[in-house]
Design a binder for these strands. Structure first.
Lengths: 112, 112
DNA sequence: GCCTTGATCAACTGATGTGTTGAATATAGG
DNA sequence: CCTATATTCAACACATCAGTTGATCAAGGC
């Protein structure tokens, strides 16, 4: 289930916020409930709840049910798809740079 | 020069738009001017010019000068920093998953 | 049943993003 | 010089985002 354009929009937009990135950092160390996630932040629980919804809609986290709690879990496969998207262009550019360097070396050889 | 929080905001926000991602895809195949970049899109040149400014402010592209043209070049090192940011949390999560799997295997052994 | 706790929904505000049009700047080229 | 080309600036409209407060829903514990 590769990301379509709208899913990429949602995923990158989700990462474009320091609070949501901090939530991801926290979740990389293990699952947590909404209350646990909200605790370190100076903003309301409702604001954190909405940040979590954004991360979930972006596919970056999943949620389970534990009584009245809704624990959040990081979704590493979604993160992996984002790095793949970025890397395809980064690697293409780096390959191109290497080809240019090689060409310049060839010209320099002929110059001698 | 690692990305600080605001630089991450700008970089991920820059990627959270299909036009800007298409510009990056185009630039991965080589440098291009504003006019060249704008050509495939149904929006105004000014809108593309601003998208390019966003990419430049995010550090994802650099610009040179060629007479009246301002060619754009993709900056692979900035892309690399973004994948590094994502990967630190993805890899931590995957390590944690493996530890849990190993623990479950141990329990299963003892159960037999 | 009833109150508490965990979490979400709804409505509103202020800030920011994305597009437009029209004007301005700067370099190229005859 | 003068005009055409490449690009940007400025001002505006419209949509979306991030935060707030107040109300609501759902599950637990007694």
């Amino acid at each position: 289930m590769a990301f379509d354009e709208e899913a990429l929009d949602r995923a990158f937009l989700a990462l474009a916020d320091p609070v949501r990135r901090a939530l991801i950092a926290r979740l990389s160390r293990g699952p947590a409930t909404v209350n646990e996630l909200a605790e370190p932040f100076p903003i309301t629980l409702q604001a954190i709840s909405r940040h979590i919804s954004v991360l979930e809609a972006a596919g970056l986290i999943t949620r389970t049910r534990d009584g009245q709690r809704r624990p959040c879990h990081l979704a590493p496969s979604a993160l992996e798809q984002l790095t793949s998207w970025i890397d395809q262009y980064r690697l293409e550019t780096e390959r191109r740079f290497r080809r240019i360097d090689a060409l310049l070396d060839t010209v320099k050889e002929q110059d001698q």
